[in-house]
Amino acid sequence: MSALLESLIELIRRTSAELPDDVNAALVRSLEQEKKGTIAESALKIIERNIELAKRKSQPLCQDTGSVIFYVECPLGLDQITFEETAREAVKQATKRGYLRQNSVDSVTGKNDGTNTGPGAPVVHFHQHRSAETHVRLILKGGGCENVGAQYSLPAEKLHANRDLDGCRKVILDAVLQAQGKGCGPGILGVCIGGDRATGYEFSKQQFLRKLGDRNPDATLDALEQDILKTANELGIGPMGFGGKTTLLGVKICAANRVPASFFVSVSYMCWAYRRQGLTLNSDSSIAGWLY
């Protein structure tokens, strides 16, 4: 087995079975904040136990192991064709070993061939950079939370949302309200202001690569992130929508240019089972270190 294949299988295993430290820490904090004796507290306690069990047994945190999305930052000259083929093989092997559920369905025939590979599965995004290092990040995006994502076109008359930052705030909070607990909250929002219909969602998902505790370098977006997080947690939706203090664990927002005629706000929702991990490869493709 090639070193790259081995490294990618380990990346999938670890992503599926272990929550990254920043997410774990945020969940621990939210558990401390919930009122004792509430069902919100109980829900978070069960989530904590689940995280511990999955890690110990090296089993998927959630049975929906989601869409498999790789983000590769690579130096000039990396053979992307071989890399992508290896990534597909890694997904097949990881599925055989039970790190991933047989989770990919042919949308026309309804058949599931049990390999988790097919058109658009897995997704591999490449991005070249000038450094000699290769970073591979992976997100496993569950379906329940994907279903509560939303894309708004401003102005949104019903919500009194105009083409300005206040309008963006209104539609993002509307997405939180509509989601309630259905995306297995407490959740994390990834948002893109602008772009087109495709890039808007694309960039909103890339926000999930950021660490929960980081701050947006853009002061305006940073203020909006903090405001949405605070406001959402005052709504009382709570873990699983049971009511409570923790509705969101984080909000990450980016902006992309738009054409004058369009103004989209795209909101992706990530469940508490926020499976995101990444690694740096050595020159022989073995694992040099973990990114989260």
Binding site: I47, R49, N50, Q59, P60, C62, G181, K182, F242, W272
Partner: peptide
């Protein structure tokens, strides 16, 4: 998970049934 609507709620009332929410994602 996620709850159900008014029709099911009425069915629960009529026939003596409850909707029980399990913790989403707590597969293990």
């Amino acid at each position: 998970k996620g709850g159900m609507g008014e029709k099911t709620l009425a069915g629960c009332k009529e026939h003596g049934c409850v909707y029980l929410h399990a913790i989403g994602g707590a597969a293990q």
